[in-house]
Each structure stands twice: as C-alpha cells, then as structure tokens.
Computed example of a mutant assay.
Amino acid sequence: MYSTFAQKKPLVVFVCGDHEYSGEQTLPYLAAELSKNYGIETKVLSAYPNQNAEKNIPGLEILEKADLVVFFLRWRQLPNDQLQYIEKYLKAGKPAIGLRTTSHAFNFPKGDVSENWNAFGEWAFNAPPGWGGKANHTHYGHKSSTDVRIAPKARKHPIVKGVSSDFHSESWLYKVQPDYPSGDSEWILIGKAVNPDKEAIESPVAWIGTNSFGGKIFFTTLGHPADFAIEDFQKLLVNAIHWVLGLKAPKKWKGKIDIQVPYRGIVK
C-alpha cells in the first residue's frame, strides 16, 4: 500500500508542539527540503498560538489524507476532537515517525478521560510510556551530550545510507534501556552519554519496528536543534522518511540543509 506513489506525491505531515526544542522551527526546513528536492508533498502543523499552547494544534484533519505523520510533541493535552484524527490515522496502520520528546507527547491529569494517551510513546513508537514512570525514562543532565554510532546489525540498512559510522550530538542521552524499545524494534543508532550527571548506560537513540497498530515506525531520541545542523542527522531523517513510506533511499544526496536554530530551553 505504501510502496509506490506512481499516481501522486506522498503527503508527509509534521505535527509540532514541544515547549523546548523548537521543532516548529527546525522541521519546516526539513519539510521544505523534501518538497524542493525529493518529490514529497509536506505540511507542517504547529501548536497555536505558540509552542507552549498545550491544548491546540489546528489542522489535524489533514491526517485523513496523510501518507506519513512525523511527530515532535511534548506534554500536550489536546481535546478529543483533535486526538481523534491522530487515533484514526494510527489505527489505520499507517507509518509514523517520532522525535525525542514524542516519547512523552501527552500529559493528561490522573483520572482524565484521555489519560491513556500519556503512554502514547509506548503504543505508537515502542518507546517508554511517558517520562519517568516504571521505565525510569530520564536523561543524563543538560551539561551532557551524546556520542552516536551505527548499531552493528544496522550498518547496511538503507536508513543509514551516507550517514557516518559515528558522530556527536548535543542531545543529552535519553535512557530507554533495559526494557525499551519494545516489540520487534531493531536498533539503528546507539548513544553513549558524554559528561553525564549520574551513572549512564548506553541506549539506542534510533530504532525501527512495528507499533501496536501494525504501522511501520522510526523513532529517534535525538532532536536538539543543534542536531538539525548536522548533515548526518539530516541524512538519517530524509532516509527514514523514505524508508517508512516504502521508498528507496535517495540515489543522490542533494546537499546539506542550512538549519541554524538556537536552543531556547523551556520559556514560559
């Protein structure tokens, strides 16, 4: 179903709202590049009126037409009339990509009718079910960074075509081990914390698999705005988008994307 798009360009929708990492600024650069050089139609949806607006991402009805959705969310509390578009999309078994804080995309109060969405990372991306919790999903401090390398079994995977065997990321490593990623997930990239604030264990920072709805997935815990300036990370995302759509990795890399977005942190 998703292997050919001979009659039309595939539509990739980016859904942003993450408080901290400026996904609503970095992802439009990627979307524009896909549209300009890789034959992919794109649409970017962002939290309104700004990244701290946790209860409104206008335009989600376009997910009914989407061939792929890329999520970069953090602790949203969307109303049911918006959640239903995400739920319908995923239940159709369509592919999905998640970045960094999407492991804890939602944060509904205890007892809320939508509280089950707090485990979105688990049932949509085989990631830990929210921040902290039973999986002790955490990171190793804002003064740390991450050395990244390609997982041994993934060295010939099309997602890492043209990606260096190792590179450095400004993202502080997310702990997902020992229980995640779950299901049939395959590690693509492995991260080692540099200058951690506590004892650190290596964890996968990118994986592929099938989610609980049968949808093809790619997830990465990377996503600091400085990562988007790294050509290896750009190649990884472009390749991953093609892979989950059932397309071959681009024959030719069209060149580094000029993305210069500063890290702002959480600004209320």
Rank of each mutant, 00 (worst) to 15 (best):
90 L>E: 14
91 K>L: 11
91 K>T: 14
95 P>S: 03
95 P>M: 07
96 A>Q: 03
96 A>C: 08
99 L>R: 09
102 T>F: 02
102 T>G: 02
102 T>V: 06
104 H>A: 05
104 H>D: 08
105 A>L: 04
106 F>T: 02
108 F>N: 02
108 F>E: 09
110 K>G: 15
111 G>F: 08
113 V>N: 14
113 V>S: 14
114 S>T: 06
117 W>L: 06
120 F>G: 02
121 G>H: 03
122 E>R: 13
124 A>K: 06
125 F>Q: 05
125 F>P: 03
125 F>I: 00
127 A>L: 07
130 G>V: 06
130 G>H: 08
130 G>W: 06
130 G>Y: 01
132 G>D: 00
132 G>V: 04
134 K>C: 01
135 A>M: 05
135 A>T: 10
137 H>N: 12
137 H>L: 02
138 T>F: 08
138 T>G: 00
139 H>S: 07
142 H>Y: 13
143 K>R: 13
144 S>T: 02
144 S>N: 07
145 S>T: 11
145 S>E: 05
146 T>M: 07
147 D>M: 11
147 D>G: 11
148 V>I: 15
149 R>A: 11
149 R>C: 11
150 I>N: 08
150 I>P: 08
151 A>C: 06
151 A>P: 04
152 P>D: 14
152 P>W: 02
154 A>S: 13
154 A>K: 08
154 A>N: 07
155 R>W: 00
155 R>L: 12
155 R>D: 10
156 K>Q: 15
156 K>F: 10
157 H>R: 10
158 P>K: 05
159 I>K: 04
159 I>W: 06
160 V>K: 00
162 G>W: 07
163 V>E: 08
164 S>V: 00
165 S>T: 14
166 D>N: 14
166 D>K: 15
167 F>K: 05
167 F>R: 00
170 E>W: 13
170 E>R: 15
171 S>G: 01
172 W>Q: 15
172 W>V: 11
173 L>W: 00
173 L>H: 05
175 K>F: 03
175 K>C: 04
176 V>G: 15
179 D>V: 04
179 D>A: 13
180 Y>K: 04
180 Y>N: 09
181 P>D: 07
183 G>R: 15
184 D>A: 02
185 S>I: 08
186 E>R: 13
192 K>D: 14
192 K>A: 13
193 A>P: 03
195 N>Q: 12
196 P>D: 02
199 E>L: 10
199 E>A: 13
200 A>H: 02
200 A>Q: 09
201 I>S: 11
201 I>R: 12
202 E>N: 13
202 E>R: 08
203 S>G: 01
208 I>M: 11
209 G>R: 02
213 F>K: 04
214 G>T: 09
214 G>E: 10
215 G>M: 10
217 I>H: 06
218 F>T: 01
218 F>P: 03
220 T>D: 00
221 T>P: 01
222 L>A: 00
222 L>K: 01
223 G>H: 03
223 G>Q: 02
224 H>T: 07
224 H>E: 06
224 H>M: 07
226 A>D: 15
226 A>R: 15
226 A>Y: 14
227 D>S: 10
229 A>T: 11
229 A>H: 11
